[in-house]
Design a protein around this nucleic acid. Structure first.
Lengths: 201, 201
DNA sequence: GTCTATACGGAGATAGAC
DNA sequence: GTCTATCTCCGTATAGAC
């Protein structure tokens, strides 16, 4: 695949990184061109507009997310282990999260404020995580609550990312990961151990 | 206070709303000027640069937040009731949150990506909430854990705001508010009811 | 034909002079 | 409050290199 169009791939990679670190609005063609090391006019043979680059970046992120989820699915059979992969992502990506937040959440927030047509595609990245999480909760026997639990876990991770970027405190991330792990353990524990609270929901 | 400088106040109000709904980068002088109904050049009588407007907007938000927290403090004596005011903010501001996210979180995220000098001031709004929450948890007898609980609650609310904007689902907000209320009830319950988990943290 | 680089013009934004 | 200067960015037109 690298020989199909290496320049195009370089452009998408550079734009992906810049959209993440600087934001979509603040990133210009000149920034991307400089990062790739090509002239600005050269772009228009690969992408006709900035929105086309954004579409390509989101498509790449969708593919990357699917690959990531497949890797987590391959990492273990039990839902508990797979769900811990998701939580552990906060630690694995600690440094970029503290610097720039979550790439999915920050892009959705920015595109939402711009009323950008690509918001739907950006949200689909969230939906991939959500559906994968819901499927794992369902496999753990929490069928009815699985969608709500998936959104809850997704929201918790997003909240950690937002405050981690604002306050730049790695200890906060570590503390919240511990809380998430014990929450996971509680939720996934056999129903006998938690009769009251779950029944209400 | 309205007669001190009504035009300046109008500019700050309009900029505040536009920074929230459109983002800081995407909002230009022309947008604000049009919203206020004055000419662009007239700005320089009040603000020399866009960053100065941002400073004024953040200062106004800091003052507004302090007033809000004071109102919550006046609403009741018990920490439980006051903390519920914070959680209820998600319901009271449901519509704008689904449209534009949290004003504090989205501004910090944007300024962080721009490496903007005003990030520190924007983060101070978060700090006001954090310290107020920590103080309430401390008043509830959770002295040692108060700072961590405050950050945790702040993060939960931010996560709800991010996903609410991305998915635009009011039922999700309502469900998460219920979870937050039961979490609050559990945390604030007498220590006798929860001996194991709290000791670990 | 494909890819790349330079040059040019329009639009909009900030900043400031009058 | 008008009017101008300067800068950046987007888009295109043109031409050279493989």
């Amino acid at each position: 695949m690298p020989d199909l169009s290496p320049t195009r791939q370089q452009i998408v990679d550079a734009a992906d990184a810049l959209f993440y670190s600087q934001g979509f609005t603040h990133t210009s063609f000149a920034h991307v061109a400089q990062a790739v090391g090509i002239s600005r006019g050269n772009f228009y043979h690969h992408f006709k507009s900035k929105d086309e680059i954004l579409d390509a970046v989101i498509a790449q992120r969708l593919a990357g997310t699917e690959a990531l989820l497949a890797a987590w699915s391959a990492a273990g059979e039990a839902p508990a282990g797979r769900l811990r992969c998701f939580v552990h992502m906060l630690l694995a990506n600690q440094a970029p999260i503290m610097a720039h937040g979550c790439p999915v959440g920050s892009l959705c927030a920015e595109l939402g404020k711009l009323d950008h047509p690509a918001l739907g595609a950006a949200r689909d990245v969230f939906a991939l995580f959500r559906d994968w999480l819901a499927n794992e909760f369902a496999r753990a026997g929490l069928g009815d609550e699985a969608p709500g639990l998936a959104m809850h876990l997704l929201a918790r991770s997003q909240g950690v990312a937002v405050l981690a970027q604002a306050f730049r405190n790695p200890a906060f991330i570590a503390a919240e990961v511990l809380l998430l792990e014990s929450w996971l353990a509680e939720v996934l524990a056999p129903a006998a151990r938690r009769p009251s609270r779950r029944a209400a929901a």
